[in-house]
């Protein structure tokens, strides 16, 4: 039995599709249900559908053997787990974005950065030796510079259309090649004998 933690949201569909191509019975993922733990008809696979940022938590704790989650989340969560494969889909960049000309305000010495990647932003500005005030938000990050809540945002950018519609531009690409990753629990990889063969199949599938 293999338990997966799958990120709901933008990666969900492609994750399920990939697993199906690798011979995992994923029919249960498409059923209308309120159950939280889904088990495939053949009883070989269990699925936990969770918020993206929770995928590394479930995998690190060993509740899930494998997980599929964006690299952005892995960087942010920085958990103790194995990152096995780059699955290639869901590609985006992690960028600093804002107005093309930063409006200098005398009373505001620190750069104010709005983001949902709080840990990553803190590390980033600390590494650069730059003082920044990190403002934690949970959605519609672009609203922050538009309303004057923050000077810039630090967020994932896929097409950039939301930025454009609000008059914002990418000021700096910090991490590129942010894609979905297959992660594994460190103990499961060694002790669950079904894991490696499946990982090999997924590897062949994405090549």
């Amino acid at each position: 039995m293999i338990y997966f933690a799958l990120a709901k949201g933008r990666l969900a569909e492609e994750s399920a599709g990939l697993l199906a191509r690798c011979g995992v019975d994923t029919a249960v993922l498409y059923e209308e249900t309120r159950k939280l733990v889904l088990t495939s008809a053949d009883g070989r696979y269990g699925f936990l559908l969770v918020k993206p940022s929770d995928v590394p938590v479930y995998v690190e704790a060993g509740v899930a053997d494998l997980g599929i989650v964006g690299k952005d989340t892995l960087i942010e969560e920085n958990r103790d787990l194995y990152e096995m494969l780059d699955l290639g889909f869901g590609e985006c960049r992690m960028c600093i974005a804002g107005y093309p000309n930063r409006r200098d305000v005398l009373t505001n010495a620190h750069l104010r950065v709005a983001t949902k990647y709080v840990n990553t932003a803190k590390r980033l500005y600390a590494e650069r030796g730059e003082d920044a005030e990190i403002i934690a938000l949970h959605g519609s990050i672009e609203l922050a510079p538009v309303t004057g809540l923050a000077d810039v945002i630090f967020d994932v950018v896929q097409t950039g259309s939301t930025l454009k519609a609000n008059g914002l531009v990418v000021l700096e690409e910090v991490f590129t090649g942010i894609t979905a990753r297959l992660v594994a629990n460190k103990v499961s990889l060694k002790l669950n004998r079904e894991l490696l063969p499946l990982i090999e199949r997924i590897k062949e599938c994405i090549q």
Binding site: E60, K186, V187
Partner: peptide
């Protein structure tokens, strides 16, 4: 030392 039931050593 690893145990299947535990995600950590």
């Amino acid at each position: 030392g690893l145990v299947r039931e535990m995600g950590a050593p």
